[in-house]
Design a protein around this nucleic acid. Structure first.
Length: 878
RNA sequence: AGGCGGGUAGCUCAGUGGGAGAGCACCGGCCUUACAAGCCGGGGGUCACAGGUUCAAAUCCUGUUCCGCCUACCA
């Protein structure tokens, strides 16, 4: 027997340990008897702490994996973590700083050691939090992007792409974070607009004949200007092209060039050109053969090219420069302006476009196949509308800057020769330059973008570049479940790398879920203070309720809005399951389903009804999961479990257990509860296991590996189920009368029924006990003639019967008339709509026959009920 | 600038051609031995707005408007 009260903390850890102990989450690459299903986890950062995004992401994956595992698949859910270069380096630097140490104090090697130490100590936090959620990963295979095997994959990929010319090193404008001290890829920059200014600065002509005014949002960059550009079609400036201006303060003579990229109508129509500090300017500079002058260092401090501003921070320089320009009369205007700002997505520092030598991946050739794969449907992107976004980005893809000027990460396998200056790229550490054989070589100090190794995740985790049995069996994976925010960062790049190195897509489906927001739809953030902490939610309500809430809100393509209160709501559901379990178990003592001869069972109406409902729930649940409709899955089972099984069947079972076929009832209770638990297990793993373990008649050691329910045609009784629906309608109708006329629930009453057919009488007669029990009826009398209708009585009509509650003195006649009027009014309105529809010739001719038939049937029903209601009203007034 | 998503009950959202739904909140009645974390009953919506297609529109098309997000080199 299970405890009276449900408390998650008593069961969650227990069963998780049990599952791990039995190795139930393990995949078997040598098993050839089953179909396969595989997923790789989106690896969380080792610095990460479980947030709602992780919780949603992993809950959805776990639902799929548990479903497939139960459905007989050889299932691999590959777990692991990501080394998160910049983020981790930041964290460890902060930690060292608290002890008064900088990474430069201890040097690269020692620092890396410190990071590994840190990882040993803290890197498992998030993994443990995932376990708390109940995730059924094959933990024995846990990978880390910095593992030797994965590092080998990184080196191999780098070398082959380099050899093919798809990786190159070049001087280019990159997004530079002066705080992280590193280049960033385009994706790692967050764009937003801020209040700023547009400065108008006059550059005098070199020949002293006047000057021209340029507009800029970053005046300090003028120190690196090497030209002024105008649009060739701009009449105002046409004659100036070819002349020179003198750069104020610096005094450098720079040319005026013309280029179509310049907008005539922005600012003054003349733009200052700083090739070393702006992407457009750099490209313009290339076209016009302009010099690039770098004016600040890697910390954003002005260098000697900045003349008098050397040593100033870029913003300090901006202020001072503005003063100086004003003093010398060069500053013509300063107007407020919304300035687009790029910020480092890690530390929010304003990035500086910066000219430097970096490694790039030539993305376009790789993108082509990735585009094609989605076009052809080798990989499906769901929800579909993300396809367009994917294509949009892929079609306009730019080269990917992969070098980072930090220490923590995969060091670039390239060596420079001090003698000949050439580069040697090699998987293994080379002893000499492959160009001049000099031994005077040194390795590039940069590391690779973390996403470079993440891009290999679906196959590097399975042992690539070795040709492992795991790869053979489980690549490509079946589905990738991840947030849409890393569609480009990660999904697109895995597609490119998978196709290039495995010759096949990394996954058949990509299911992109939404972001988790608060209940007002706002993004969660620490500064807003609206964070919902998943660990706290699990502490309060249990992992089961928490998971169910996430699944129930995960409608495809919509944000997941969640609040503490909503999780609590589903805690009530889990509690409901718990209590249903208690009820069934209490009635199953001494019962062994294996000893029951199924053919000898004599199912009642109610039995047949719930078994048929069960079949429908099974079909719907499977259909929902097969199509990633998690919310439908959750809601469908919620409804079946609570409102079909608990609200109706368990109540039906009570009189049945007292009747003459208790064993049949037990069999049904057992069967339906077991099925409920198995259906729900993917989303509610713990409580389902706790109850399931106590059920008699288990075939396997755990619900984790129980067969996922399939529709059982031998338990399908649709016509009897329909008849039971009529009984349910009648019980509801009687309850409504009771509720609306204020008859005390404890009072048993007599009713009179006039059926519309012999059929209904037969049905009611054989369902008498249910009606009496659930509607609290003492006696049911039948009438066949309208003359027998009781005069002063409350009245209700269903599609099949009229129900009278003759309680003179107890019912208020006026109130009852009012009640009847309200119903008559409502049904009349409905009937009008039907009449209109059915008198429409176009409808009769063009609509489907079934639809017309259905409308006719509904009209007939309405006519019947209206007629009876009016009659009841007449009688009441009479 | 372009793209995408959304506007349905008081709140949060399902529903994508044929009778407007759920959960929560609200109102009324119940401690009926699985469950008061519960049971029974009830009220509540011009489906953003305007056109169009159709026998039929919350659903498809066009436009308007408001909100959110993403991409973009107008300094």
């Amino acid at each position: 027997m299970i405890d009276k009260d449900y408390s998650p903390e008593n069961i969650e850890q227990k069963w998780y340990d049990f599952w791990l102990g039995r190795g139930l989450f393990k995949a078997d690459e040598y098993d050839d008897t089953k179909p396969c299903f595989s997923i790789v986890i989106p690896p969380p950062n080792i610095t990460g702490v479980l947030h709602m995004g992780h919780a949603l992401n992993n809950t959805l994956q776990d639902i799929l994996v548990r479903y497939k595992r139960m459905d007989g698949y050889n299932t691999l859910w590959m777990p692991g973590t990501d080394h998160a270069g910049i983020a981790t380096q930041n964290v460890v630097e902060r930690y060292l700083a608290s002890k008064g140490i900088s990474r430069h104090d201890i040097g690269r090697e020692k620092f890396i050691e410190e990071v590994w130490k840190w990882r040993e100590k803290h890197g498992n936090l998030i993994i443990n939090q995932l376990k708390r959620l109940g995730t059924s990963c094959d933990w024995s295979r846990t990978r880390f992007t910095m593992d030797e095997g994965l590092s080998r994959a990184v080196r191999k990929v780098f070398v082959s792409l380099y050899t093919e010319g798809l990786i190159y090193r070049s001087n280019y404008i990159v997004n530079w974070c002066p705080r992280c001290h590193s280049a960033l890829s385009d994706l790692e920059v967050e764009h937003e607009e801020e209040d700023g200014f547009l400065w108008h600065i006059r550059y005098p002509f070199a020949d002293g004949s006047g000057g021209m005014v340029v507009a800029t949002t970053r005046p300090e960059t003028m120190l690196g200007d090497t030209a002024v550009a105008v649009n060739p079609s701009d009449r105002r400036y046409r004659s100036y092209v070819g002349k020179e201006v003198i750069l104020p303060i610096i005094g450098r003579r720079i040319p005026i060039v013309s280029d179509p990229v310049v907008s005539v109508d922005f600012g003054t129509g003349a733009v200052k050109v700083t090739p070393a500090h702006d992407l457009d300017d750099f490209e313009l500079g290339m076209r016009h053969g302009l010099e690039s002058i770098i004016i600040m260092d890697e910390d954003g401090i002005m260098n000697s090219n900045a003349g008098p501003y050397k040593g100033m921070d870029r913003y300090e320089c901006r202020e001072q420069l503005e003063k100086d320009l004003g003093k010398d009369g060069f500053l013509v205007d300063k107007t407020p302006y919304r300035v687009p700002i790029g910020k480092c997505y890690r530390c929010k520092t304003v990035v500086e476009p910066y000219l430097s030598k970096q490694w790039f991946v030539k993305a376009r050739p790789l993108a082509e196949k990735a585009i094609q794969a989605v076009e052809e449907g080798s990989t499906r992107i769901l929800p579909e509308h993300w396809k367009k976004t994917y294509f949009e980005w892929m079609n306009n893809i730019r080269d990917w800057c992969i070098s980072r000027q930090i220490w923590w990460g995969h060091r670039i396998p390239a060596w420079f020769c001090r003698d000949c200056g050439e580069i040697t790229v090699s998987e293994d550490t080379p002893e000499r330059c492959e160009h001049c054989s000099s031994t005077n070589i040194y390795q590039d100090s940069d590391v690779l973008d973390t996403w470079f190794s993440s891009a290999l995740w679906p196959f590097s985790t399975m042992g690539w570049p070795d040709d492992t049995p795991l790869l053979k069996k489980f690549y490509p994976t079946d589905v990738l479940v991840t947030g849409f925010d890393i569609l480009f960062f990660w999904v697109a790049r895995m597609m490119m790398m998978g196709l290039r190195f495995m010759g096949d897509v990394p996954f058949r489906d990509v299911y992109l879920h939404a972001l988790v927001r608060d209940d007002k739809g706002q993004k969660m953030s620490k500064s807003k203070g609206n964070i919902v902490d998943p660990i706290l939610e699990m502490d309060r309500y249990g992992a089961d309720a928490f998971r169910f809430a996430l699944a129930a809100f995960a409608a495809m393509g919509r944000d997941v809005k969640i609040s503490d209160k909503r999780v609590q709501g589903y805690r009530f559901f889990v509690n409901k399951i718990w209590n249903a379990g208690r009820y069934v178990l209490a009635n199953l003592e001494g019962f062994d389903p294996d000893k029951v001869d199924k053919d000898s069972l004599k199912f009642s109406y109610a039995d047949k009804w719930i078994l048929s409902e069960m079949n429908r729930a099974i079909v719907d649940a499977r259909d929902a999961l097969d199509n990633y409709r998690f919310n439908e899955f959750a809601e469908r089972l919620y409804h079946f479990t609570w409102h079909a099984f608990c609200d109706w069947y368990i109540e039906f079972s009570k009189p049945q257990l007292q009747g003459n076929r208790p064993d049949t009832t037990r069999w049904v209770l057992h069967r339906v509860l077991k099925t409920c638990l198995e259906l729900l297990h993917p989303v509610i793993p713990f409580v389902t296991e706790e109850i399931w373990q106590q059920l008699p008649g288990k075939e396997v050691e755990s619900i984790v590996v129980a067969k996922y329910p399939v529709k059982d045609d031998s338990l399908e009784f649709s016509s009897e189920a329909d008849e039971m629906d009529k009984v349910i309608d009648m019980i509801s109708a009687i309850r409504t009368i009771r509720g609306e006329t204020g008859i005390s629930p404890s009072e048993r009453i007599d009713i009179v029924i006039k059926g519309s057919s012999d059929e209904i009488r037969r049905i009611v007669d054989s369902s008498m006990s249910y009606i009496k029990d659930l509607a609290r009826i003492r006696d049911i009398a039948w009438i066949t003639d309208d003359k027998e209708r009781p005069a002063k009585s409350a009245f209700a009509v269903t599609s099949d019967a009229e129900i009278f509650v003759p309680l003179e003195g107890i019912i208020d006649t006026l109130k009852e008339l009012d009640r009847l009027d309200k119903q008559i009014k409502r049904l009349t309105k409905e009937l009008e709509i039907k009449e209109k529809k059915l008198s429409n010739r176009g409808f009769l001719e063009k609509a489907n026959k079934e639809v017309v038939e259905e409308q006719r049937r509904l009209r007939k029903d309405l006519v019947f009920r209206l007629k009876r209601l009016k009659k009841a009203k007449d009688l009441m007034q009479g």
